[in-house]
C-alpha cells in the first residue's frame, strides 16, 4: 500500500516537473523566435519539410472525408427532402470541426512525430550538445525555426483540408447523387458566416498548430537520448497531441459556439 502511494507521489512529482520544463522550454522558444528573422533560409527549409511534405496526406484525407460527408449527409438530408442543403452541411462540418481537428491529428502523426524523432536523434548523436559547445544556441538555430514552421503551416493545411473536403462532397453529392450544383454552392454561401465559422475555424487550427509544435519539439528535446527513449518520445508526441487537440477542441468550441 505504501508502495502504491510512493509510486503515485513520484508520478505526480515527475509530471509536474515535466510541465515546468515544458513551460520553460516554451518561453525559451518564444524569445528565440526573433533570431529566426535574420536567417530566413532555416525557416524556409522547415516550412518545406513540415508543411509542404504534409500536403499529400492532407489532400487525400480531405478528399475522402469530404466524400464520406457528402454521402452520409445526402442519406440523412434526403429523408427530410432537404438534400439541397448538403453544401452548407458539408462545409460547416469541415470548416468548424473536421478541418482543424482532423488536419491537426494528421499533422501530429506526419510532421509532429518526425520532428520529435529528428530532435531526439540529434540529442542522441550529441549534435545539440555539440552546437552548445560551439556557442550556438540549439533553441535558436534548431528549435525556433521548426516551431514557427509548424505554427505557420497548420492553419494553411487545415484550410487546404477543408477546401478539398468541400470539393469531395461536391463530387459525391452533385456528381454522383444528383444534388443541384447551384444550390450546393449558394446554400453554402448563404449558410456560412465568415466570422462565426471561418475565422473560428482558423483560430482553432492556429491553436492546434501551436500545441502540436510545442509538444513534438519538447518531447524530442526532453527525450532520453537512446533508441528506446526516442521511440517512446515519438509515441508520446502522437498520443499527447491527440489528447490535447481533442481536449482543446471541446474548450474552444464551447467558448466559440456554446453558452457554457
Amino acid at each position: 500500500m505504501t508502495q502504491f502511494f510512493e509510486h503515485l507521489g513520484n508520478k505526480t512529482l515527475s509530471s509536474f516537473a515535466k510541465l515546468g520544463r515544458s513551460s520553460f522550454f516554451l518561453i525559451q522558444i518564444l524569445t528565440a523566435t526573433v533570431s529566426v528573422i535574420p536567417r530566413p533560409r532555416l525557416l524556409i527549409n522547415q516550412l518545406f519539410s513540415v508543411g509542404v511534405l504534409s500536403f499529400l496526406i492532407i489532400t487525400i484525407s480531405g478528399l475522402f472525408v469530404g466524400m464520406v460527408l457528402g454521402l452520409q449527409g445526402f442519406y440523412i438530408l434526403s429523408d427530410f427532402g432537404a438534400e439541397e442543403t448538403l453544401g452548407v452541411m458539408v462545409a460547416a462540418s469541415l470548416v468548424r470541426e473536421l478541418g482543424p481537428v482532423v488536419a491537426a491529428l494528421l499533422f501530429a502523426g506526419r510532421a509532429g512525430s518526425a520532428l520529435t524523432a529528428e530532435i531526439g536523434l540529434m540529442k542522441a548523436t550529441e549534435q545539440l550538445s555539440g552546437m552548445e559547445m560551439m556557442a550556438i544556441d540549439p533553441i535558436k538555430r534548431i528549435i525556433a525555426p521548426r516551431f514557427l514552421a509548424g505554427f505557420m503551416s497548420m492553419p494553411l493545411l487545415a484550410a487546404l483540408f477543408s477546401s478539398i473536403g468541400v470539393l469531395g462532397g461536391h463530387m459525391v453529392g452533385v456528381g454522383m447523387l444528383g444534388v443541384d450544383d447551384g444550390s450546393y454552392w449558394s446554400q453554402m454561401q448563404a449558410g456560412l458566416d465568415f466570422y462565426d465559422d471561418i475565422v473560428n475555424g482558423v483560430i482553432k487550427s492556429i491553436v492546434f498548430g501551436f500545441a502540436v509544435s510545442w509538444i513534438s519539439l519538447f518531447e524530442g528535446y526532453d527525450a532520453i537520448p537512446t533508441s528506446e527513449g526516442v521511440s517512446r518520445a515519438t509515441t508520446r508526441t502522437v498520443v499527447n497531441s491527440a489528447f490535447t487537440i481533442l481536449g482543446l477542441d471541446f474548450i474552444l468550441t464551447a467558448l466559440m459556439f456554446g453558452d457554457i
Binding site: M122, T125, E126, Q127, S129, G130, M131, M133
Partner: peptide, 11 residues
C-alpha cells in the same frame, strides 16, 4: 573547441 566521440556533425 570540443571534439565529440561521435563527431556530432550536423547531419
Amino acid at each position: 573547441g570540443m571534439l565529440f566521440q561521435s563527431g556530432a556533425l550536423l547531419t
